[in-house]
């Protein structure tokens, strides 16, 4: 303790004085510093002796007491009510249920969940198909099997070559086809597992069907093919692209080409009706 800095030593002495030790006993702990510490401790004791006259305190206290009482009664008393733990849990459960029910009702009300349809649509109801010109692909229909988008693309396919669809691991089938026309795709609805077709005007003989997934619902995108698996051959002829693409209409009804991605049967999608959408995607 003797090696402590002076503020520490002094504080220790003060604490001992607070505990009721006499100054002489305290100074005995630090004989080397006794000469320095003694006057300082005397000063602290002198400060401790300073007091306001008790009569003054009592007078002020009496005067202020009525003010405090008046203030206390001026506003209604606030009581603290606490629920027993079991009621807390019950209340929490009730709130949770209400939130779930409320959010579900909201989803139905906003049309995100269609109770009449087996398909669950996620995401915003307006998905815009992106038309991209790829330098290599003549026609790259972009099947966006995104669970977030429910876009109906009606497209007229006039392809001359037999497609070879090679779905990639991320359930992105690649279809090679030769198309001569431009495809216009219009989506009016949110498309989940509905293709958004991207076409370009070049005449490269393969179109790539790409499944695009929006990042919001990535957790819902099924993994179609394991790594290294061979793509399934297309079972149907590739889509023929038409300019007029009455496509733009996709009034949602037709969408549901959901299955596309998965099993290479994407091609059917055009005509919308989920070709057993159930089977496709999910089982993988």
């Amino acid at each position: 303790m003797a090696d402590w800095p002076m503020p520490e030593i002094f504080n220790d002495c003060v604490e001992r004085l607070h505990d009721g030790q006499p100054i002489e006993d305290v100074l005995r702990q630090y004989p080397n510093y006794a000469d320095t510490l003694r006057p300082m401790l005397e000063i602290t004791r002198g400060i401790q002796q300073l007091r306001v006259p008790s009569a003054e305190i009592a007078e002020s206290q009496d005067r202020i007491r009525s003010e405090v009482l008046r203030e206390y009664h001026a506003t209604p008393s606030r009581r603290i009510y606490t629920l027993p733990p079991i009621l807390n849990i019950a209340a929490a459960l009730m709130l949770t249920c209400l939130c779930i029910i409320g959010s579900g009702a909201g989803l139905v009300a906003t049309g995100i969940i269609d109770l009449d349809n087996d398909d669950v649509q996620f995401g915003t109801p307006s998905a815009q198909p992106s038309i991209t010109d790829s330098p290599t692909a003549t026609f790259s229909p972009m099947v966006s099997g995104t669970p977030t988008a429910t876009t109906t693309a009606s497209l007229t396919r006039t392809s001359t070559s037999s497609p070879t669809a090679s779905p990639s691991r991320s359930s992105t089938p690649t279809a090679t086809t030769s198309s001569t026309r431009t495809l216009t795709v219009t989506s009016t609805r949110t498309a989940s597992r509905t293709p958004s077709i991207t076409s370009s005007h070049t005449s490269t003989p393969h179109a790539t069907l790409t499944r695009t997934t929006t990042p919001t619902n990535t957790s819902l995108i099924p993994t179609r093919l394991p790594a290294g698996s061979t793509p399934l051959p297309p079972q149907n002829p590739p889509p023929t692209l038409d300019d007029n693409s009455g496509s733009n209409n996709d009034n949602g009804s037709e969408n549901d080409n959901d299955d596309d991605s998965d099993e290479g049967d994407d091609n059917d999608n055009t005509n919308s009706n989920d070709n057993g959408g159930g089977e496709d995607s999910d089982d993988d």
């Binding site: 002076m6 503020p7 520490e8 002094f10 504080n11 602290t44």
Partner: peptide, 10 residues
């Protein structure tokens, strides 16, 4: 506070 009280008394 330790330093301040020491300096104040000093």
């Amino acid at each position: 506070i330790k330093t301040m009280q020491f300096r104040a008394v000093e």
